[in-house]
Design a protein around this nucleic acid. Structure first.
Length: 263
DNA sequence: AGGTCATCCTGGAAGC
DNA sequence: TGCTTCCAGGATGACC
């Protein structure tokens, strides 16, 4: 669930509640959340340092620390951030206590999320081969075109590939394909320029609209597929029944009436 | 290279 | 009511 807009909401939350605060204690009730580091090293870096800034790239959240490295968090499917003072929330994997008495918890019931340290954000992303974040300055239609160029798979698969573009997940891939009127299995190669433009605009609109309501989907206009993703749902455009297609274990919702296969 | 499938994990929904 | 089964879904890796 946490895709680009959801992670951006979490970043803003962290910006609001963590930046400028000193970390006085680090709780690691489930150290398996750590990737590429061990609890001792992790605590050494975090304890006593101050959070100076936040950053997000695709579905990755970063916090810059006074001590040189960055803290990174990936939320997996069910990861979230919770601020608490008294009773702790459930499913805490990592919790930072701040000098102001607040605790910022990384909760993750299904444990697909992870956290770790990075010396440099760009190097971290480059090492993993992640594509550009479509909401960052400089990403435009030409950049979108360039990223799709040479891809031969189907659109749903290409959009989900974080190495092509970082931040699109299952729900937003469906949303942009729906708004652009493209069947999920449309081949990426050979798309007309006007079609690529439509897809790009659908992506940007979906991200902007979702962020405007801080990802509360029920507050989106009715025309968004995000409001209609369940088994009995109807297409908000033609009121036909949406189809559910399983692709590589991922449920894909689309309207067969106006998302036709094409070149 | 691209597509498919299994894997990780567990709460919550659905089914019986 | 209570137990069992299924589903969700990001990323990775094996396999065809």
């Amino acid at each position: 669930m946490p895709e680009l807009p959801e992670v951006e909401v979490r970043r803003r939350f962290m910006e609001r509640h963590a930046v400028g605060r000193r970390i006085t204690d680090v709780a690691l009730p489930d150290a398996t959340v750590l990737a590429d580091t061990v609890p001792e090293a992790f605590r050494d870096v975090l304890a006593g340092t101050t959070v100076r800034a936040t950053h997000r790239h695709g579905k990755w959240l970063f916090a810059r620390l006074d001590s040189a490295p960055w803290l990174w968090i990936h939320f997996g499917m069910t990861g979230s951030l919770r601020l608490y003072q008294g009773e702790a929330p459930r499913f805490i994997r990592l919790s930072l206590r701040f000098s102001d008495g607040n605790n910022l918890a990384f909760t993750d019931p299904r444990k697909f999320g992870a956290a770790g340290l990075a010396d440099d954000v760009d190097a971290f992303l480059a090492a993993r081969g992640w594509g550009p974040d479509p909401t960052h300055p400089g990403f435009d239609l030409a950049a979108f075109r360039a990223r799709l160029k040479g891809r031969t798979g189907n659109l749903k698969g290409v959009l989900l590939n974080q190495k092509v573009i970082a931040g699109i997940g299952n729900l937003y891939a469906d949303e942009m394909l729906f708004q652009a009127g493209l069947h999920p299995e449309t081949r990426c190669a050979g798309l007309k320029p006007v079609t690529v433009r439509r897809l790009y605009e659908a992506m940007m609109t979906a991200f902007e609209a979702s962020l405007a309501v801080e990802t509360r989907y029920h507050e989106l206009p009715d025309s968004f597929l995000l409001r209609h993703r369940n088994h009995t749902s109807q297409c908000p455009k033609c009121r036909g029944t949406l189809k559910i297609h399983k692709a590589a274990g991922r449920s894909t919702y689309y309207c067969p009436r106006h998302q036709r296969r094409r070149g």
